[in-house]
Design a protein around this nucleic acid. Structure first.
Lengths: 237, 237
DNA sequence: ATTAAATGTGTCATATGTACACTATGTATA
DNA sequence: TATACATAGTGTACATATGACACATTTAAT
């Protein structure tokens, strides 16, 4: 730090917004803090960047610590650094946006951190500016899922088209036509029919698909047009 | 900092990627450093976050310092914090993506900083990880301009459709059909015919338009589908 | 006046999106 | 075992958007 006399040291925090889907609702993994400051209040899972650690590695460490999982889908969402956002000290927080399959979590790890899955429409008030972060993350999820095949990260390795549709209906909080959704999805060529059927159904069993991971990676940065009204919002009025 | 004994102080830098368009090429405003470290090498314009300064305010300060302009379009692009990215000290850099009208700049301010506009296909090697940042920024420009009415930030207040087309052709480095481009653009309802004509033309004078700023703001987060092949990249193959 | 270069508008075939009807499959129950 | 019911899967018709073109208009230079 002596090399840059003009610069002042700042505390760098990492906060993780972790989305999950239980087949019905989109949920966030939040912790009820049993440590100071702000003990007893809800917050995002976070930590401090270590001196010899890259940002993404720090996020992975925190995510692994809480869920027991490695290789979680995570991307930078933004940086929050307003003066006074943390009343204890000047901290700047790099926020990560993460998606996990809720069934993969290590329940003991989650319990040890005093963490819970909470549906988006039941979110409590969070510490600091964490509510702003969550708002931006929900916006980002809607934005990105409309154009990128990102939703799969929230599902199990094998999934049915109706399950995926329920996920999208939860993300956008709107009903989607079954037939058009199915047609669009299959036309992407990203789904592989496993030949298996969903055994848990009480009625006709749906086909289980898995991702064509090769095409998925190749096409991840392509656009698509997934939600019906995506374009009209600009054109109308 | 004493309040968080586990945390270590880190130097937070702000770097700005500044895009401009001269009617023909997309260019970046880069500085040839006349100060240490890395004196004599090319780099992005940057600075350190001040103790009592918000991130966006810091970016605005740096942008104003270099260009003499206020209210520049700027958004966070990402955070770069790999260990060793800066050989002098552990610094984490918040990178901002900025678009300006190249004709508005304060040429004296730019000259005083030893800065130059350099076309994207003639970019030099930059210090630290600045080339990575620029690569991400170009990707982001292409990504965002395909779906959001962002290009206007690079043009003067009044502009013609052919000018806008040349901008998009520069961004994507590909020719676009005049007629379809014009039709798409006008159908957005974002352009207001000023009734004026471009006087600098040696042939038929093009109509000057301006942005409908009310609709622009209202629809900024909508999608559109601006580049012809945007969707095929996913569907094909 | 003629020419050259650029702008502005129109038309067509095709692709895509949307709304909706119908059939198929599996379970529970009379 | 037959029927009802709920969910899954496929097909079709219509409206709209897109992409490839042709043609007319404007301006300055010759």
């Amino acid at each position: 730090m002596t090399s840059y006399p003009n610069a002042s040291g700042i505390i760098l925090a990492l906060d993780c917004i972790i989305f999950g889907f239980d087949g019905k609702d989109i949920k966030l993994l939040l912790i009820k803090r049993n440590f100071e400051p702000e003990m007893g209040k809800w917050s995002l899972m976070g930590g401090f960047l270590e001196p010899q650690e890259n940002l993404e590695d720090g996020a992975s460490r925190i995510l692994h610590d809480l869920t027991g999982l490695k290789n979680i889908y995570a991307e930078q969402l933004g940086v929050y650094g307003n003066v006074g956002r943390d009343p204890v000290a000047r901290t700047v927080s790099v926020v990560f946006f993460a998606l996990i399959n809720i069934d993969d979590q290590d329940k003991d790890a989650v319990r040890n951190h005093n963490a819970s899955w909470i549906a988006l429409d039941k979110l409590p008030s969070l510490i600091f500016d964490h509510n702003d972060m969550v708002g931006q993350a929900i916006e980002h999820l809607r934005y990105k899922a409309a154009m990128h095949p990102i939703g799969f990260e929230l599902l199990a390795e094998q999934f049915t088209i109706p399950q995926l549709q329920k996920l999208y209906e939860a993300i956008y909080n709107t009903p989607i036509d079954r037939r058009n959704f199915s047609r669009k999805l299959l036309s992407t060529g990203l789904l592989i029919d496993t030949g298996l059927k969903n055994s848990h159904s009480a009625t006709k069993k749906a086909t289980l698909y898995k991702l064509d991971t090769v095409r998925y990676k190749k096409k991840f940065n392509s656009f698509w047009n997934f939600m019906p009204e995506s374009r009209e919002s600009l054109m109308s009025n």
